[in-house]
């Protein structure tokens, strides 16, 4: 334990991530004359945004559990707001949307109390039943199904799914002695983001065959396979250190994150394509919006959570 009460392994992992960012910044500087100006600017913006995101994430993880929960609640809020700003909404639903927002603090307070039973049903059961009921009271039936369906999809993706990252923090410490929930969060978030970068890099380096041309023309089979393999290996290397998983389970977790990350990415791509936008927002220069950054996590967070939960908690 360090002075802040932060496990030494968490600090070591964060130091490792910062080391990777230093490498990325150096590589960006080296590539300056080898790329055209627009490509280099985008790369530079991306790396700069990574610095900002990693710094905020590291501070949130290190300070205290409640700060971490507030941070994840805020990420859900930003992602949900971005989603609502993109989709068609009905004028009459302003009140309903307001109620939907209130589910965000409720969900994270539930996590703060480690109330598992409520955490897994608040959005999928109560949100699912109560928001359409509130909508019915407005008496407007035109586009009712579209409004109820899109609102709930957004809540499931940005609030329910993403909040699984936060619930890792309140799992019993004893199971993952020495590093606790923070180790699981670092493993999940780092591997998910690393997987995005790895798929991108493998695709750029040797991508030939398009994976899903109608949804996301940039994605290639080679990028997918290369990224998933890299993430699987890295999962195996990091799993025993950061999580209660055995070596075999760690490889499987890496594989799960690699595949699920790809599915999350293309699912949000399909949504953006349907809405006719390229980026979900402009919050993170070089990346787009917050949804563009957490799209993979929407899939990896609940799947990894239940993988670990089933095996060890």
């Amino acid at each position: 334990m360090s002075d802040f009460g932060v496990p030494a392994a968490v600090l070591a992992a964060l130091a490792g991530i910062l080391g990777l960012l230093v490498v990325a910044s150096l590589a960006t500087a080296v590539l300056r004359h080898r790329l055209n100006e627009a490509a280099h600017r985008e790369l530079r913006q991306r790396v700069q945004s990574w610095w900002v995101m990693v710094t905020i994430f590291a501070i949130a993880i290190v300070l205290s559990r409640n700060v971490s929960l507030a941070f994840f609640a805020f990420v859900s809020f930003l992602a949900f707001k971005e989603y609502l700003s993109l989709i068609p909404t009905r004028r009459v639903d302003r009140q309903v949307i307001f109620w939907a927002y209130l589910l965000i603090p409720l969900q994270y307070v539930t996590i703060g109390h480690a109330w598992y039973g409520m955490f897994v049903i608040l959005v999928p059961v109560y949100g699912f039943l109560l928001l359409p009921m509130r909508m019915v009271l407005l008496g407007e039936t035109r586009d009712f199904l579209r409004a109820a369906g899109t609102l709930h999809w957004g809540l499931m993706a940005t609030v329910f799914s993403l909040s699984h990252v936060a619930y890792l923090l309140v799992l019993p410490e004893a199971v993952n002695a020495g590093i606790g929930g923070a180790g699981l969060v670092l493993f999940l978030v780092f591997l998910t983001q690393f997987n995005d970068v790895a798929q991108y890099v493998w695709g750029k380096a040797c991508g030939r065959h398009k994976a899903l041309p109608t949804v996301s023309p940039g994605k290639t089979v080679e990028g997918l396979v290369g990224g998933v393999l890299t993430t699987t290996v890295l999962g195996g290397l990091l799993g025993e250190w950061l999580t209660p998983l055995s070596l075999m389970e760690s490889f499987l977790a890496g594989l799960l994150i690699g595949v699920a990350g790809f599915i999350g990415d293309v699912t949000v791509s399909a949504l953006k394509r349907d809405l006719g936008v390229k980026d979900s927002g402009s919050l993170l220069p070089g990346h787009g919006g917050i949804l563009d950054r957490v799209d993979s996590l929407v899939y990896t967070a609940p799947l990894f959570f239940h993988f670990v939960y089933y095996l060890h908690y």
Binding site: K81, E82, L84, S85, R94, F98
Partner: peptide, 8 residues
Amino acid sequence: EALLVPFF
């Protein structure tokens, strides 16, 4: 309207 609903 008096109720503020967040949108970008």
